[in-house]
Design a protein around this nucleic acid. Structure first.
Lengths: 330, 330
DNA sequence: CTGTTAGCGCCTTCAT
DNA sequence: ATGAAGGCGCTAACAG
């Protein structure tokens, strides 16, 4: 099923059919119409390799998810896939579990496979190797070369503000890896808001030994735990529960990213969600522009949204606070 | 940088260079050697589209993950990617979040993009449309057309046996969706083992209203909760803890699939893990055989592994049991 | 045994 | 407004 087949049916040349289908207007409107209808009927679809060979573009973009263990992966993959589909691209994936070398190797594999451009969610703390391919980077505003990302800092600030409004004055901020730009920005946003309000925000890094004792912190007066990921929020939540400390009665817990389990645990987790679809769309649009050699849109930042569920509440002993329209959004 | 460039350097035809590089032996060994060295120096890489156009194969397989809510997705994507890379294939993804139609549409998109074959993890309870493309299906042995999968039934039986050995006699089995073949097999395996031992295994489906009250079940004498997924095990675990019931002191909790959070919660979750790498490898190998028109290996089943952590223990009031070499495997 | 010719399907000149 | 021709880079089939 190719252009030639259709051309013969109409007694014209394959070039004419090509022109008719691409609508470049070098064919009489009436003939073009008939050709399009017939092609549709026959279920004609152009051969991607032939087109790629001729045009030098494969119509495929690569997606490098450095941290495939990242539970956000499915959502990113799905969102990038949808955005790419809208822009007429297919998506080739490559894992780069491992170090920067693996990440670079993944990029090169995609290039060898003919990707027209690549969307990268880089591995923490690494810089994406400059390559001879259009790139779109999803990381954090502080990352050089970043293309688009969620407003991690603003999200942190918003979460902190809400906790302050609930009367919390002594908080613990839980991060996992100091070398993650995303985590540093989230914590930075939280800290800034707390400091501005004169509250205490003590940062705990899970990568440090020994493992922190959350229940001890709670007994020492911490009334809220803000983790840079729902995964760590869950760790805190279960540790407190196991120690017999009620959440949110005794201490509140919140995280980031609204992971799959966050609504399913008890109490359900309050979390700062990122608009994965918008971020993915932004990345694909910027990438498409770069591929077409047009000026890409400026670096963009997508606002985050507070999803307030059951794991947060007023600080114990704090004066009662008005809680307006803050239900369980799940 | 193409075959022709190299050919001209040596004063031979591009076909000869092709033969030399592909090692098909139609070139004098000595010339072939020199050509290979030179190609290496020049950093020659074949053009995928050109090769695809000529051979009719793109060297790309599709991956359809239908059930995006499945938290195992990242691991499958990564494992399939790795296996495909080993077999010389690239991986094109397509999301088919939604119904069977979306699943079929995703398959067709991949075909149009030139996938040589497709690995499908189908949406629960759907049948994969027969398409004019080699397929490999990862679901459950009871699914018609299944290619390879974990031994869900055997895993269920093994988990049940262990719980019986720990003295549990009244258990609750937690499933989410009756139409999932995987979940039905896991529950079937558990039930069979329990029945054989004369123990009670009551099945609770989360899709049924009203939502089950796990703490009430525990108070009514259930000493162990076996969920078909760690996600639901987590729901049970947090619900019990919130109600002040100790895990595993008062009741044990276990799940399936060893999800990302399972080792990070407190108490860490005992779980029946599947060997995602082996399953993915099996799917890709079978698919590669089908693409090459060789007989694929017979339907395969990969054993599951019990990962015993802190959330399970002896039934309260049961006679003490010898626990041999069953540590925390995380 | 060594090497060349032909053509995969498409799109873009250039000619009619 | 349409057609003929050529070539993208590669390899299967053929010729020497």
């Amino acid at each position: 099923m190719n252009l030639q087949t259709i051309a013969e049916e109409f007694g014209v040349s394959s070039a004419t059919v090509s022109n008719a289908l691409s609508g470049k207007g070098r064919v009489s409107a009436e003939l073009a119409q008939r050709i399009r209808e017939r092609a549709q009927e026959m279920g004609y679809a152009p051969s991607p390799p032939a087109r790629a060979l001729r045009t030098g573009r494969t119509g495929v973009i690569g997606l490098v998810l450095a941290d495939l263990s990242n539970p956000l992966f499915p959502r990113f993959a799905r969102a990038v896939d949808a955005a790419a589909e809208r822009a007429g691209y297919g998506v080739l994936i490559a894992d780069s579990h491992g170090d920067v070398n693996a990440q670079t190797a993944a990029l090169q594999r995609l290039v060898r496979r003919g990707a027209d451009g690549i969307v990268v969610v880089p591995r923490r703390g690494t810089r994406v190797l400059e390559l001879d391919v259009p790139l779109a980077v999803i990381d954090a505003p502080s990352t050089p070369g970043n293309t688009v990302c969620a407003d991690h800092r603003g999200g942190g600030a918003a979460l902190a503000s809400r906790m302050l409004a609930l009367g919390h004055r002594r908080l613990a901020l839980i991060g996992a890896n100091r070398d993650s730009n995303v985590q540093r920005e989230r914590i930075g946003g939280i800290s800034a808001a707390l400091v501005a309000a004169g509250a205490e925000g003590r940062v705990v890094w899970l990568e440090d030994a020994p493992a922190p004792d959350f229940s001890a912190l709670a007994r020492a007066g911490v009334t809220a735990f803000l983790a840079t990921s729902d995964l760590h929020a869950l760790t805190v939540l279960t540790a407190l529960q196991r120690a017999g400390l009620a959440v949110p009665g005794r201490a509140s817990v919140a995280g980031f990213d609204d992971l799959a389990f966050s609504a399913a645990v008890s109490p359900s987790l309050t979390t700062m969600a990122q608009d994965v679809d918008a971020v993915a769309e932004g990345a694909v649009v910027a990438l498409a522009a770069r591929i077409a050699d047009r000026a890409p849109p400026p670096e963009a930042t997508v606002p985050m949204t507070l999803v307030e569920r059951e794991s947060t509440g007023p600080a114990p002993g704090a004066p009662p606070t008005t809680v307006l329209g803050q239900g369980d959004i799940r």
